[in-house]
Design a protein around this nucleic acid. Structure first.
Lengths: 259, 259
DNA sequence: ACAGACCATTTGGGATCCCATAATTGGTCA
DNA sequence: TGACCAATTATGGGATCCCAAATGGTCTGT
């Protein structure tokens, strides 16, 4: 249990993301105090945090207004994150002394492969897969030698699907066992990209590492676009339901990769 | 005049940057209340802001400790920013409907050229040049179509030389009229890079736009390294004194480019 | 003399109060 | 009837108070 203001910020953030607070709605300190039964101090801290995250901004005159969170915005943020990850991959490929990091990445790749080969995509498997994906991506961010890359990524990781290692799945297909082959193929392709990134970094090929990571990031954007194509009224809320790692109440990225 | 907590955050931030608060120093709310004669509410808001900026972090038990701001860290942040700007350049090259933005960029380039051709690098000229440089770079960030690029850049712009359009000069050379030719040459090269970026964007050549912007960003890093080579004990404070736009107490980037 | 427990002081989180000011409403005058 | 001005209210910023938790030092018992 964190402090009240942190919890409050999380609550409000998700109220904004899932549409409880509509775009343009005005937030006043007093209302939030009343509805959450807390005093104004934590409310003010929470609002300040959300303002810095860009979820809300000072309105004209008084009060805050909630910013719009759109599918397009998520895609843009994923693009930014992917671009930063590609920088990390390039830098890591140029760096020396990374055997430990490489080992951890290789292990994550093998474990993901094993999980895919199980053939069943239940929640437990997805959770494990996400953990390994998280390990792979965080290792690169942490091991690239430029700590600002990770810092900057974390700065935007409050948005859905922006946390390190986030994955998007077609839950309809998984739950209904429909098109499961297509989903598994997608996962296999994703992990093969992991292999290429690993190899490029290991062989100190920065251009290939950067390019492959960029491609890998594009995968998520394209997958989101598949959803958009299938459902032209796709909401951010829908998108969240398709992602592994629901409400990230636990700040899992704090632990990092342990190095 | 902003609110007290904003001013306080600015003050503490610069105390950290210029070394008044040493790396690892503990900040307690009570001390800051006492030394700045304010109550704990604004202090807490200021500390929260600085924490999110990464300038300080929660210590082991109680209190905050100041993070180290090093020349190496600045270089890393400049690299991140440059990488994001190269994404912006690529995206803008791919986009349509940007004649206004292109006009503004062309105008900035010509004005910078005119300022360089004056041959004298007094403070007023540098300030004007910085303004044009700011226009050029912000126009790309704002006009690339991905608003998260600009947002993410702004997230790290509290560090010295990270604000949009920041420039680094060899003040020793300027004040003492020594090596002024070398400085002018450097400026001319920088502006020629501007021209190439402009041309690539105008001709919708994303690869060239991205590559040239990356090169343009590297220029600042290399320039910093020139200073490091000349003075092996170069401090962040020294670096700040070499940059145009001292303490950015005025949040000049708020105005943007007007679109 | 050393170890463990206990107490005091420090410190941070939260609640409440006060005040300045922006927004709104109502009234009056042209 | 419409516009302008004043009074009231809503709201946010800052100050102060209270409480819980943690830290450090001391005291006592073995």
């Amino acid at each position: 249990m964190s402090s009240i203001d942190t919890e409050l910020a999380n609550t409000i953030r998700w109220d904004i993301i899932d549409g409880t607070f509509a775009h343009g709605a005005r937030l006043t300190e007093a209302k939030l105090c009343d509805s959450h039964n807390v005093s104004r101090t934590p409310v003010r801290l929470a609002l300040r945090r959300l303002e810095q995250e860009g979820m809300i901004r000072k309105g004209e005159g008084r009060g805050y207004v909630v910013e719009e969170v759109t599918v397009e915005g998520i895609k843009q943020a994923v693009q930014v994150r992917g671009h930063l990850e590609s920088l990390a991959a390039r830098l890591m490929a140029q760096s020396k002394n990374k055997p430990q990091d490489l080992d951890r990445m290789a292990l994550a790749i093998e474990r993901i492969e094993a999980l895919i080969d199980q053939g069943s995509l239940d929640d437990e498997t997805l959770t494990k897969m996400h953990a390994e994906n998280f390990t792979f991506h965080s290792t690169i961010l942490n091991g690239c030698g430029n700590s600002y890359v990770k810092f900057t990524c974390d700065q935007i990781s409050h948005l859905p699907m922006l946390a390190s290692g986030s994955m998007v799945f077609d839950r309809d297909s998984i739950d209904g066992k429909k098109d499961i082959d297509k989903t598994i193929l997608r996962l296999k392709i994703g992990n093969s990209q992991h292999r290429i990134i690993y190899k490029a970094i290991e062989q100190e090929d920065p251009v290939r590492a950067e390019g492959m990571m960029r491609e890998h990031s594009n995968t998520m954007i394209e997958y989101i676009e598949v959803f958009e194509h299938r459902n032209t009224k796709l909401t951010v809320r829908d998108l969240v339901s398709y992602s592994v790692q629901g409400k990230p109440d636990k700040e899992s990225q704090k632990t990092g990769t342990g190095n």
